[in-house]
Every structure is written in structure tokens, then in C-alpha cells.
Design a protein around this nucleic acid. Structure first.
Length: 355
RNA sequence: UGGAGCAUCGUCCAGUGGUUAGGACUGCGGUUUUUGGUGCCGCCAACCUAGGUUCGAAUCCUAGUGCUCCAG
């Protein structure tokens, strides 16, 4: 029996995680991380409802639930990070940062400081704890479709040594919901969370338009340099994007690249436009679960959540950069997104696509 | 100013006497997804104006208006 602090979001996954830990006989304490409470125009932040859901589950399980204020850290490391990246023409992945700095940052550190042996979350992932100081290995969930290790690559194996993911072994989401229903947790019908949590249904486009200064510029055909239209800011677009260009009349066009310096958005009607394909990536800000880079060699690499695992050569490059080379070109990899490296089932770590 | 041509969803086109006026793109919504994007599904939306011919007009005729091209 261990003392386990479980992050409870008010959702289905973390509720079942807490329930399973209680059943395993641990001394379980629930923590609701209050990351964001601010409403946006047209969107009421549902944090209080989520907290109420988490509290209901905690009562059912007979455990304590506390609220920890993480708003400062969340704003600085997730929300501001997101805005800054978009302002610089990159396409950030806020959830990756949230896992690093909030769930396995602020939350975990405070839990350990208060005497927790382990922290737990409702992530779809598995850990293999290392013995005697060896970092844990992070493994993909049994449900390959729900696997969330793509968002977890920046966290260290030392941290994962003290983390457990009780639902990582579940076959699929409906099994998780069914397990919640069996236990009478009362939230089995709550919809999955979706989209950037603090932006909600408002949508990224209008959030960015409200947050960043508009900067009208040209939409240019990648092949010919012909000006096809105007945009409200190159920061609104990401590689491969189709919607939002407002170019009627011709064929569908896709964003090939954006240039925040010249404020130009390059587009092509050719889905197989050479500019949309990448054979080689340079990663920056690499992190490795084991604490050090794996030996150069062939691994599996994923450049988007729910994207295929592709074989690729991964090797250190100048400085702290990492070079990833695919035998076959990959379509629409956006700078700012994560490239996550796997060896079989194991998530080794990764980096942020520089170019 | 003469000669010719064209005016149909927001855009680009299809439709030459009887169509629920069709498609593509855009936009909007949904779905997929604990990021962005993609994909998939669905929805909105139009016959330049005024007369006429006809049982019936986007379609034929006349005039007007607008645009394009060739002349000069």
C-alpha cells in the first residue's frame, strides 16, 4: 500500500484511475488542478462543473479531494507558450507542455513534497518501473488508438518511476466507461474532452484573432508566386491547413508554408505539392525519458497524435539538435509540433520540430 | 463612338422551353481527436432589371443596365 495522489479532472479516465487505485488498497487522495478559470467571449470556462464532477466521484469513492491552484504556472507555461509560438509562426502543442510543467511538474512535485509515494493520472499510457534508480520506461497504452504517450515525451523516467497510469491497460474507451458505470461513478456518459481546454468551442482562430494583433498579408500560390488573396495574419495558418483561406472559385488549396517575416501564406492546390512533404526533420529542445539520447539508429517516429508510427533514422546533430530522416517523405509536418521517438512500444522521448 | 460577346449560389462553372436549377471551391455545422492540421458527413446559398412570346422561360424576342474583347 502506497500513498497515491491522483490528478482528477472531473473526467471519465481519471475517475476510473482513482477508483482502481482505491480498489488496489492504496491510500488515495484526489487533487483537482485548477489550471484555468477564465471565461472567453462566447465560452464559459467549465472548471467549476468539472470540479463538481470530480468531487462527486471522490465522495463515491470515499476519498478526499483537494483543489490545487496551478493557474500561474499554467498561464506561463501553457497559455503564454501557445500564444508566443503562434506569434512566431510555429504550431505549438500545448498539451505536451501541460504534462511537463503542470501534471508532472507542479502537481507531482507538490504531491511528493506532501508525502505521496506515487502520483497517478488518467492517461492512456503504461510505465515499467525501473529497479534501484533506473529510470522507468514509458510504454504505449494497450489501446493504440487512445494512446497518449505522444503528449508525454517531455517527462523524465525518474518522474515516471513515481507515476502510475491505472487505465493504460484498458482495451478501449468504452471499456473504461463501462468500468465507471459498474462502479456507479455517475460520469460514464460525460463526453470526452476535446480541443485546447482553455479555448474550448470558441476555436483557435477567433482566440488568436482576439489575442494577437491582426496583420493582413498576401496569400501566394507556392508554385507561381501569384497572389491569390489576402489573410488576416500568417499566424492563423499551419502547414497542410485547408480551411480558413477563404479562396473560393478554384480548387481546394492547402497551406504549404507560412512566413511571419514577410507575412506571406504560401498555398498550393496540389495535395502532393513537394513543399508539403518532408524527408528530414531537425528537432530542437529534445528530451529523453531515459535522461540521455538513445543510440543513433532506426526508430519509430510519430509527428502527430493519431498519426502513423513511421520508421526513421534518428541521430544527434550539431548542438542539442536531433536529425530525423524518413525513408519515405512525410506529409505536412508543422514546425512547433512534437516528433516523438519510439523503440517498439517504448516512448523514448523526442523533440520539437524546428524545420 | 462603331462591331462582337457575356450577365446563374460569396467565387468558378453546368444547365438552350417543362430540372426539387446541378457541381466544385469558400463559408457554416457535425464527426474523428486530451494540440494544431488533415480526412469524412451534412447544411446554407443564385437565374442583372423591365416588358413580351408561350399552357410553360435561366433557356426565345425587345429595351435598359453592367462587364469583356476587337476596331479606332
Amino acid at each position: 500500500m502506497s500513498t497515491v495522489y491522483v490528478g482528477m479532472s472531473g473526467g471519465v479516465d481519471s475517475a476510473l484511475a482513482a477508483a482502481l487505485l482505491v480498489e488496489q488498497g492504496h491510500d488515495v487522495r484526489g487533487i483537482y488542478m485548477r489550471n484555468w478559470t477564465q471565461d472567453l467571449p462566447g465560452f464559459r470556462c467549465p472548471w467549476a462543473d468539472d470540479l463538481a464532477d470530480a468531487e462527486r466521484v471522490a465522495v463515491t469513492l470515499g476519498i478526499d479531494l483537494d483543489v490545487w491552484d496551478c493557474e500561474q504556472e499554467y498561464r506561463a507555461t501553457v497559455a503564454d507558450y501557445l500564444v508566443d509560438a503562434y506569434a512566431h509562426g510555429r504550431t505549438p502543442n500545448p498539451d505536451v507542455m501541460c504534462n511537463q510543467t503542470i501534471k508532472f511538474g507542479t502537481f507531482a512535485q507538490r504531491a511528493f513534497a506532501e508525502g505521496a509515494d506515487l502520483v497517478a493520472t488518467g492517461h492512456y499510457a503504461r510505465v515499467e518501473h525501473g529497479r534501484s534508480g533506473v529510470p522507468a520506461r514509458l510504454l504505449r497504452a494497450v489501446d493504440e488508438h487512445k494512446d497518449q504517450t505522444y503528449f508525454m515525451w517531455r517527462v523524465s523516467g525518474e518522474m515516471y518511476n513515481r507515476a502510475v497510469f491505472p487505465i493504460g491497460g484498458y482495451a478501449n474507451k468504452s471499456a473504461v466507461r463501462a468500468a465507471c458505470a459498474e462502479r456507479g461513478l455517475g460520469i460514464e456518459d460525460k463526453p470526452d474532452s476535446d480541443g485546447i481546454c482553455f479555448i474550448g468551442p470558441v476555436g483557435l482562430r477567433s482566440f488568436l484573432l482576439d489575442t494577437l494583433e491582426r496583420r493582413p498579408g498576401d496569400i501566394v500560390e507556392w508554385e507561381t508566386g501569384t497572389v491569390l488573396g489576402r489573410h488576416e495574419g500568417a499566424f492563423l495558418f499551419t502547414v497542410g491547413q485547408r480551411r480558413g483561406l477563404d479562396l473560393g472559385g478554384g480548387p481546394a488549396r492547402y497551406v504549404v508554408s507560412t512566413d511571419t517575416e514577410t507575412n506571406v501564406v504560401y498555398v498550393s492546390a496540389d495535395r502532393d505539392c513537394p513543399g508539403l512533404w518532408t524527408r528530414e526533420l531537425l528537432l530542437e529542445d529534445a528530451r529523453w525519458v531515459a535522461g540521455e539520447a538513445p543510440a543513433a539508429g532506426r526508430y519509430l517516429v510519430r509527428t502527430r497524435h493519431t498519426g502513423p508510427l513511421r520508421e526513421a533514422s534518428v541521430r544527434p546533430d550539431e548542438g542539442a539538435l536531433v536529425r530525423v530522416t524518413f525513408p519515405e517523405p512525410v506529409r505536412t509536418v508543422a514546425p512547433g509540433q512534437s516528433a516523438v521517438v519510439y523503440d517498439g512500444l517504448e516512448c523514448m522521448g523526442g523533440g520539437i520540430v524546428a524545420r
